[in-house]
Computed example of a mutant assay.
Amino acid sequence: MSVDIDITGLPAERIVFSPSPLAELGNALHALAAPGHHPGLHGWTAATAAGLKPDLADRLYEAHFLWSPGFSDILMAFAAVPDRQGQPGATLAEELDILDQLDDERFVASALEFSCSATYNSGGPSPLIDPPGRERALQTAAARGPRQEDFTRRLLTDPPAIRAWIRRLLEDCEQAFFADTWQRLRVQLAADARHKADLLRHKGLAEALAAISPALSLTGEGRISADKLTDGLATALDPAVGAGITFVPTTMGWPHLLVLHAAGWRPVVHYPVDEPDLPRPPSVQIVRQRLEALAHPRRMELARFLARGAYSTVELVEVVGMSAPEVSRHLSTMKKAGLVTTRRRGRYVLHQLDLTVAARLGSDFLAGILR
């Protein structure tokens, strides 16, 4: 499964690397709403949440579906404004001005995209003008609580008033905590964007993608492919919004790799800046292969022994009561998944569970599904 972006013939100058203060604020709000996704930010989320005034905390809860569990495209509004050529604003105020340029239909559709994911790629009508879409948005919001349902109803009834309300909310967040956070992060993010742009210039797109994330690759069909637990297809060649693609670095968004691939929007890859102390997670395919390998009860039994020490096939046959061909087949499956290591001792080949890989499987699984 993957989200692919068609870049056939796209010139390098149409590929933009730039931080976005509004997108980073969205990540900060997501971290506050879902701190379990961001173990490296526990100190920041705990201190920030404790310092929020009750009124601001209540308002954040009302609108929290804009950044949790999903991430609304309105937080990267520059991708829908042709005049921006894929460039985010330099300040939060500038990005909020860009957000104000979206018409009500596009704003509402993007704000409520959690209720219309089935039409995300194809670009269905806005819930503002589509009665079935409106009803679906209200039903989905109701499942998240009465305050979210009421907020959604007000957004559908009076978009200008709620848009002004959201802008004030984001401005209040900047004043309360984000200005200091952005001041601390913006230099690092700008430096990372410059570094990736230099890689693109001097070593090509494939090298730049490899440095951005192991989940990104350049295919032979002229596409950028993002290893995700979903399927999607976008184009960076839409003349209506301007050909190009934007890469936005984030510190607070780790481990999420977000790909904006909505119809009628310029594609955006919102990538986490590497944390030097954290290992890069394997691909979704490898994680799935390892989980499937361990799901078989006989392989689970083998893992019990292999976790304790190194065993030859002959020894495993004796302790688990399987035939030698059975044991060999199961060991082959586990080895292909990277779960078992082998070494030769004389005429025997010894097998052992890779404890480091097994210990990381839970965190790799979470990184894969959260990416």
Rank of each mutant, 00 (worst) to 15 (best):
M1H: 06
D4P: 01
V16H: 12
P19L: 14
P21R: 13
G43D: 09
D55S: 13
L56E: 05
S72C: 10
I74H: 03
A77Q: 02
F78H: 14
F78N: 04
D83R: 09
I98P: 00
L99M: 13
F107Y: 15
V108R: 01
L112F: 14
S115F: 04
P125M: 13
L128D: 01
P132H: 09
A137S: 11
A142M: 12
D150E: 11
F151R: 08
T157W: 01
P159A: 12
A161N: 03
W165P: 00
I166F: 00
L169F: 03
C173V: 06
Q175V: 13
A179T: 13
T181Y: 01
T181M: 05
W182Y: 14
L185W: 01
L189Q: 10
A193Y: 09
K196N: 04
R201C: 05
E207A: 06
L209S: 01
I212C: 02
P214Q: 01
E221G: 13
I224H: 03
I224N: 05
K228D: 09
T246N: 09
F247V: 02
F247T: 00
P255S: 07
L258R: 09
L260R: 07
H270E: 05
D274L: 12
E275H: 12
E275F: 13
P279L: 06
P279F: 07
R280W: 02
V284F: 09
V287E: 01
A293F: 04
M300N: 10
L306C: 02
V314D: 15
V317E: 09
E318S: 11
P325F: 13
R329Q: 15
T333L: 15
K335A: 15
T342E: 15
R343L: 15
G346A: 10
L355H: 07
R360F: 03
S363P: 00
A367V: 05
L370Y: 10
L370T: 12
